[in-house]
Amino acid sequence: MGTDTKGKYFQFVDSATDSPAAGASYNNRLYYNPSSGKITRQTAIVGYRNLAGMHDYIVTQVRKNIKK
């Protein structure tokens, strides 16, 4: 989780690839939209996100970490 010039984001690992480097790319970020309240964006994996019928990823649940 962090903030950059585009706003607040959650970084994620995209399991839709067989390339660990692409799946764990620092560009895989889902951004918070304060107008809609949604956290969404496309994957950074160009070959995958450009396939017909692909949609943005949308966060549907955020859970707190368990502190030990």
Rank of each mutant, 00 (worst) to 15 (best):
G23I: 05
S15N: 10
Y26W: 10
Y57M: 09
I58T: 15
K67S: 13
I45G: 02
N27M: 13
K64Q: 14
H55R: 13
Y26M: 13
V46Y: 12
R41F: 13
T17G: 05
T60P: 00
S15E: 10
S25Q: 03
I58H: 06
K6V: 03
N50K: 15
R63T: 15
Y31N: 06
G37K: 04
A22C: 07
G37H: 05
A16S: 12
Q42C: 10
M1G: 11
N27R: 11
Q61C: 02
S19V: 07
T17E: 06
M1A: 11
R49A: 04
Y57A: 09
R49N: 05
I66P: 06
L30R: 04
V62S: 00
D18G: 09
A52P: 04
I58A: 08
I66W: 07
G47R: 03
K64C: 09
D4M: 07
R63P: 00
R29V: 02
Y57T: 05
N33G: 03
T5F: 10
T43N: 04
G37W: 01
G37I: 01
S25P: 01
N28S: 04
D4V: 05
N33P: 00
H55N: 15
G47C: 04
T43S: 15
V46G: 06
Q61H: 05
F12R: 04
A44F: 01
D18P: 05
I66S: 11
N50V: 14
L30P: 04
S19R: 09
Y31D: 05
N28P: 06
Q42Y: 15
V13G: 06
Y32I: 08
P20K: 11
H55M: 14
K64G: 10
D56Y: 14
I58W: 00
F12T: 05
K68G: 12
N33Y: 05
M54S: 01
P20H: 08
M54R: 15
G53T: 04
S25N: 02
T40A: 14
D14I: 04
D18L: 11
N28W: 05
G7T: 09
D14L: 04
N27K: 12
S35Y: 13
D4H: 06
V59R: 02
T60E: 03
S25W: 00
N27F: 11
A22E: 15
H55Q: 15
R49Y: 01
R41K: 12
Y26V: 11
K6Q: 11
V62Q: 00
A52S: 10
Q11H: 07
Y32S: 06
L30E: 05
V46M: 13
K38Q: 11
K67M: 12
G47I: 02
A24H: 10
T43E: 00
Y31T: 02
S15R: 09
D56H: 14
R63E: 14
Y26D: 14
M54V: 07
